[in-house]
C-alpha cells in the first residue's frame, strides 16, 4: 500500500474516534438524548471493510447494513459528519430530519440501510439485500455487520440457512467486541466461541484481528471476492473491543477497568496504524499530528453545526408515514 492510502485509512479511523468522542461530549451536555452507542475501539473494522467496497463511477455497488452502533459506518461510507451529528441531536438538518436519531440513519445513495434498533434484525434484512443483488444480477455484495449479542438471535441462523441454500452474495461481518451489553461471551455463548457458527450451514468463517486495519483489509477482500464470485455467503469473525459502555448510559461494572486499559495499551487500532506510519512508511510525526488536528476540527465544526441547527420541524410530526 502507498503511504497516501495508509494515511487515508488513518484519517478515517481518527475521524471516527473524534466523532464519537464529540458525541459523548454532546450527550453529557444534554444535546443528545436517549440511546447513544459509541464505536470507540472498533474503528479498524468498518474502515478496513469499507476499503474493499466496489464502486461503479462514484456510486457504491455493494450494500451495507448494521446495528444501532452505526455512526462510524455512516461516516466511513462518506456521509457528512455535520448531518450525522445533527441527527444525533434531533435536528431538522439530520439525515433523518431528526426523526430517527442515533440508531436510525440511512443513506440510499451510499447503499447504507441503517441503523437497526432490533438486535439481529439487520442480519435478515441484510440477507434480503444480498438476495436483491443476486436477483438483479448486478455483481454487488451485501456487507452485514452484527455483534456477538446478535449472534445468539434465531433469525441470524434462519438467514444463514437461506443464504447458504440460495448461494447469496452475503458477507456477514461479526463484530465480536466480547460483551452483549454487559453479558460476556462465556456467559452467553455455549461452547464459549462464535467461530464455528457457520459450520452447520457450510458457511466458511475467516478469523480476523479486528483491531488491525491491515488484517481487516486483507481478509475482508478475500471474503468479498469469495461472495462476489458466486460462492455464497461467508463470515468474517472480527475479534474487536469497545472501550466505552454499551451505550452512554452503561456504567460498565461488568468488566474490570484494567481489561480496557490493557487492550488500549496493547491492541489499540489507531496506535497500531500510527506506529506503522512512523516506522514502515516514514511519515513524519508532524504529518500525523496535522491529520489528528484536522479530524478534531472537523468534528468540532460538526458539533457546532448540530448544536446551532434548527430543532426538528413540528410540521414533520405526521409526514413520512405513508407514501402517497
Amino acid at each position: 500500500m502507498h503511504s497516501e492510502e495508509v494515511l487515508a485509512l488513518f484519517r478515517k479511523m481518527v475521524e471516527a474516534r473524534r466523532f464519537e468522542e464529540k458525541a459523548a461530549e454532546l450527550y453529557t451536555q444534554g444535546h443528545i438524548r436517549g440511546f447513544c452507542h459509541l464505536y470507540i475501539g472498533q474503528e479498524a473494522v468498518i474502515v478496513g471493510v469499507a476499503k474493499n467496497i466496489k464502486y461503479l463511477q462514484e456510486s457504491p455497488l455493494d450494500s451495507v447494513i448494521t446495528s444501532y452502533r452505526d455512526h462510524a459506518h455512516m461516516l466511513t461510507l462518506g456521509v457528512d459528519p455535520r448531518i450525522i451529528m445533527a441527527e444525533l441531536c434531533g435536528k431538522e438538518a439530520g439525515c433523518s430530519k431528526g426523526k430517527g436519531g442515533s440508531m436510525h440513519m440511512y443513506s440510499k445513495p451510499l447503499n447504507f440501510y441503517g441503523g437497526n434498533g432490533i438486535v439481529g434484525a439487520q442480519v435478515s434484512i441484510g440477507t434480503g439485500l444480498a438476495l436483491a443483488h443476486k436477483y438483479n444480477n448486478d455483481g454487488g455484495v451485501a456487507l452485514i455487520f452484527y455483534g456477538d449479542g446478535a449472534a445468539n438471535q434465531g433469525q441470524v441462523y434462519e438467514s444463514f440457512n437461506m443464504a447458504a441454500l440460495w448461494k447469496l452474495p452475503a458477507v456477514y461481518v461479526l463484530e465480536n467486541n466480547r460483551y452483549a451489553l454487559g453479558t460476556s461471551i462465556p456467559r452467553a455463548v455455549a461452547g464459549n466461541s462464535l467461530i464455528n457458527r457457520g459450520d452447520p450451514f457450510g458457511i466458511p468463517t475467516i478469523i480476523v484481528d479486528g483491531m488491525d486495519v491491515f488484517d481487516v483489509i486483507d481478509k475482508s477482500r478475500e471474503a468479498i471476492d469469495y461472495a462476489r464470485s458466486g460462492n455464497g455467503p461467508i463470515i468474517l469473525h472480527m475479534d474487536t473491543y469497545r472501550y466505552r459502555g454499551h451505550s452512554m448510559s452503561d456504567p460498565g461494572t461488568y468488566r474490570p477497568r484494567s481489561e480496557i486499559e490493557q487492550i488500549k495499551k496493547e491492541r489499540d487500532p489507531i496506535v497500531k496504524i500510527k506506529s506503522e506510519l512512523l516506522t514502515t512508511y516514514n511519515v513524519s510525526p508532524e504529518e500525523i499530528e496535522r491529520i489528528e488536528e484536522e479530524a478534531e476540527r472537523l468534528m468540532k465544526t460538526a458539533a457546532e453545526f448540530a448544536i446551532n441547527a434548527e430543532e426538528a420541524d413540528v410540521g414533520q410530526l405526521e409526514t413520512d408515514i405513508i407514501l402517497s
Binding site: 450494500s63 447494513i65 440501510y113 434484525a121 442480519v123 435478515s124 434484512i125 441484510g126 440477507t127 434480503g128 439485500l129 444480498a130 438476495l131 436483491a132 443483488h133 436477483y135 438483479n136 451485501a142 434465531g154 433469525q155 434462519e158 438467514s159 440457512n161 437461506m162 441454500l165 440460495w166
Partner: peptide, 22 residues
C-alpha cells in the same frame, strides 16, 4: 421462491429486498 419454514427470517429477507428496490 420456496422458502424453508422460517417466517422471521424470510419476512426480514423480504423487507431487505424491498428496501433495495424490489
Amino acid at each position: 421462491i420456496d422458502t424453508p419454514i422460517t417466517e422471521y427470517g424470510f419476512a426480514g429477507i423480504g423487507v431487505g429486498t424491498a428496501l433495495a428496490g424490489l
